[in-house]
Design a protein around this nucleic acid. Structure first.
Lengths: 67, 67
DNA sequence: TAAGGATGTAATATATATATTACATTGCGG
DNA sequence: CCGCAATGTAATATATATATTACATCCTTA
């Protein structure tokens, strides 16, 4: 689990389709990001944060040792 | 100015070469990121943060209206 | 004045993020 | 049981991030 996208999305009662389209990406791409299989771009991360009402640190921060 | 990389790098007394190599990228790529011409990947953003001793929000956050 | 460090930037090549299309499974409400 | 929403995932195509090489300017300092 490299990020908190899934947990925060579920907590916000959003489907993958809803969050993905709000962020301007496809459901498949979001699925892989949630899984940690993709290394998303900054713009994409920001768009996800905006829709979730969270910041980059809350959604995507990984402490130096934890990678 | 879409991010704070340059200001924080200069404040840390690091050259582009030093920060770039610490982050695993080239000087040219860092130059374009500082300029806001590139849309860096999350891993790259994290590596820059680690070297700068800052978090994603401190270096890369852009408020929803400010893009 | 010359040399070197720091930076900007362009051209081309390569890697990889992302889209598209398609098919599969799971679980829930009718 | 049936249908549908939600999700996983694979194959291929496309866009774009990043590397590489190269050359340029500016500034400092010896």
């Amino acid at each position: 689990m490299q990020n908190n996208v899934r947990a925060l999305r579920v907590a916000a009662h959003l489907s993958q389709v809803e969050l993905a389209s709000a962020a301007g990406i496809t459901r498949q791409t979001l699925s892989l990001i949630e899984k940690g299989a993709y290394n998303p771009s900054l713009k994409l991360c920001l768009n996800i944060c905006y829709r979730l009402g969270q910041t980059l640190d809350q959604v995507f921060w990984v402490a130096p040792g934890d990678q």
